[in-house]
Design a protein around this nucleic acid. Structure first.
Lengths: 348, 348
DNA sequence: TAGCAATTGAAAATCGATTTTTTATTCAAT
DNA sequence: ATTGAATAAAAAATCGATTTTCAATTGCTA
């Protein structure tokens, strides 16, 4: 008869018993620590394989006080930008033998706080976060810091919070987009913006303003419309503007969804794009390549941004840790680039 | 001077000390177990709040042997179908006070196996998985079972594996799509399929065949093309077919990306959709609503599918567990529905 | 009021890996 | 040959919550 319980998880104690070693030696062997001989290491590893041993993260985390896990919180995963950012983070985590776990805030502050709590309980080593639409301040991230969890904000960030931050060059990108429209001969360029409590939208607006200033364009105040991030609202606002006695001949929108809304508006009004009206969006969503006409937009180099965010943890924060000094806050800027497609190309 | 170390995580021992209780009582109070009085529960909870206590999952998981966590593995998160499925799973997990952690296989078998290993180490209670493109058999999931982790496959499944399974009514949906095309008067309906080692694509093909049979259509063998899931290949294959001396007048494709490829092909050849050629795709991706013309497709009720998958764990598997009998395998089918848009509407 | 059950709380064992401390061994050098 | 350092493995302590076992108190009944 078997002495073992029918099937309990195999532990290092079982391996120790099977090899006649001490559990501590088994642990060290499996972790390739120097204080155990090559012979033993080989022996232990073979036995572990044979017994179908699996490392128990909970036990190790508890003892170590670190989970070798990074948690990422994004508003939504089915947005091209965030999915790509996460892909970049995954790569870097994998290279460093860390796990990445993902939570969605679904643009709600409550869920975002919930996610932070979960990550504290799970004892992640670092939280990478892009704030939800509802979130006005990153105050709740203090809880994470209080529990010794590092925090890196990306894209939608609260600069006032004072921690590490990675963002696109939103102002410069918007400037370039609008300058491109001006270069194509569009003169009456309207702006469809986002919620003004989010820095990224304020920055994009600034870029727009700088460009229209430099090009010395006359912009009626009606052309500048905040809070029209989604397709429906944008369509409505664009329709109103296009029916105006002095209608715009181009739109720069802070999201691709808004650009799509403008496209629908023009289509409904039988206005030709790009001949009569030019459009440039922001984010390089998948669908921008398949509309008719295809939409010009800003590519945020999202995967690279994700890589840099994770890298910030491994190569800046983690390196400084042993020294004890808390790694002074970094603010990194990722360059984005204009993708010119049909919707803004009047001069062929 | 302070006696406490500057800042270590607050534990139930600290609360015990602060309240003069035993750690065990604190634990029971926090978990609302019956063997502790209301008075003590209130006292403990207040103190925990005051001391900014956070539950330590690692410690609890270790002791409990369960992590109250479900792991989901999908090929890609930035696919509308999977993102929606995950949203459904999240809801159900949240309702049951469980966590959901997400891994991507990026359509590679290696990464899929890696994800399973991670979940075993993390000791998740259940794995919900949709197989990668590369995966030919679910054999590697045996490892999870061997470690007492429940497995539910969804969408891309290996029926041969024998466990719990949730799928769409792929055959019926394809049948309906093709019947719809026939009803619209299209007679020469071509089929752009997927990899034949995946059941879902075999099923969709069967539905197509059944429909063309019943409508008594003559289909040259060239009309049936497997392995053209993505836009580029589909565009190429469609172009070839459309230049054929006896070209098809409609396409049913097993993915929306392929449908997009067909649309590009027709557009390049100046063929009018839906007047000259009808198109129906599969999956109801976001972009299908914004192409010109908009694409007809199959909606898979993905969020509901996700809810059901998670529900299968909580209401079927978990319920049976105490009894010891291992919950006989379930195969659940989620009905999908045809979404008729412009690309297949010839009769207005 | 004695006797017994039902509550309520404390004590101690436990989960499995890591890490620090000890002990035992090897080997070189004086 | 003996001290000493260097190496290798064992022993023991530890992480923090849960759970089982045990003890004490309360309350109720006869």
């Amino acid at each position: 008869m078997l002495l073992q319980k029918p099937d309990k998880r195999v532990t290092i104690h079982d391996i120790a018993r099977a090899t006649g070693l001490a559990p501590s030696s088994v642990s060290k062997a499996l972790n390739d620590l120097p204080s155990v001989s090559k012979r033993i290491k080989a022996l232990v590893k073979a036995k572990a394989e044979e017994m179908n041993y699996r490392h128990n993260s909970s036990a190790a985390n508890l003892r170590r006080g670190s989970s070798r896990t990074i948690g990422v919180i994004v508003p939504k995963i089915n947005v091209a930008f965030f999915a790509d950012v996460i892909a970049g983070m995954e790569e870097v985590c994998f290279e460093n033998d860390y796990r990445l776990i993902i939570c969605q805030s679904h643009e709600e502050l409550d869920k975002e706080i919930q996610a932070v709590e979960t990550f504290i309980e799970q004892n992640v080593d670092c939280i990478l976060i892009s704030l939800s639409q509802q979130t006005r301040s990153a105050e709740h991230l203090k809880q994470a810091l209080a529990h010794h969890i590092q925090v890196v904000q990306f894209d939608r960030v609260d600069h006032h919070f004072g921690g590490h931050v990675i963002v696109n060059d939103n102002k410069a990108a918007a400037y370039e987009a609008v300058k491109h429209l001006a270069d194509q001969g569009y003169r009456r360029i309207a702006f469809l913006g986002g919620a003004m409590h989010l820095q990224i939208y304020r920055d994009r607006k600034e870029g727009y303003l700088q460009a229209v200033n430099e090009a010395d364009l006359d912009i009626p105040y009606q052309y500048i419309v905040d809070d029209s991030r989604n397709a429906e609202i944008a369509m409505e606002k664009a329709t109103t503007l296009l029916k105006y006695r002095n209608p715009p001949d181009a739109f720069f929108t802070v999201t691709d969804h808004a650009a799509l809304g403008v496209l629908k508006a023009t289509s409904a009004l039988k206005i030709k794009v790009p001949q009569q009206v030019g459009i440039v969006g922001f984010a390089n969503e998948t669908f921008t390549a398949v509309t008719s006409p295809t939409l010009s937009t800003i590519d945020q180099q999202s995967k690279m941004l994700g890589r840099h965010a994770a890298d910030l943890y491994f190569n800046h924060i983690l390196k400084k840790k042993p020294a004890g000094n808390p790694a002074q806050p970094v603010c990194e800027v990722i360059q984005s680039r204009l993708v010119v497609r049909e919707s803004s190309l009047r001069n062929l």
